[in-house]
Design a protein around this nucleic acid. Structure first.
Length: 118
DNA sequence: GACATGACGGCAC
DNA sequence: AGTGCCGCCATGT
């Protein structure tokens, strides 16, 4: 049997690291974005935000809205992993996300925070 | 098994 | 305020 080559993640005993990331990303509503750091924090690995990006790199863009994840500056650092360099931005704009003159996402307006206490 | 790399973040300078 | 280095977790060579 093909063992799941997915990371066992000592920080995530049950589900795999990927699943956790994808699940969170799927919670991001259209028109909103979140950062790698925030997701990492939700996963209790704040200092390893890079892992989030790494997980998204293995994500299925068809089922995971990876375009809604930007870095802390609101920059579309993952655009290079989409079909074309402007795919990410176009998708966000389509969802109503506004950008700043420098091309970064206006986090003040679109930053989504995972509300745990509802 | 060691070393380098990665869709990052925080802190020091 | 901008630049640089280190940390952190998993993977590939």
């Amino acid at each position: 049997m093909k063992k799941n080559t997915l990371p066992s993640s000592r920080t995530n005993p049950g589900k795999t690291f990927y699943e956790k990331v994808y699940e969170l990303v799927r919670r991001i509503p259209a028109g909103k974005v979140t950062t790698y750091g925030i997701i990492a924090e939700e996963l209790s690995i704040r200092s390893a935000a890079r892992m989030v990006g790494w997980a998204l790199n293995h994500a299925d863009l068809e089922t995971v809205p990876a375009h809604r994840v930007v870095n802390r500056n609101g920059e579309l650092t993952g655009k290079g992993h989409f079909p074309t360099p402007d795919t990410m931005r176009r998708m966000l704009e389509t969802e109503g996300v506004s950008f700043r003159p420098d091309g970064s996402v206006n986090l003040e307006r679109h930053l989504f925070r995972f509300t745990r206490s509802l």
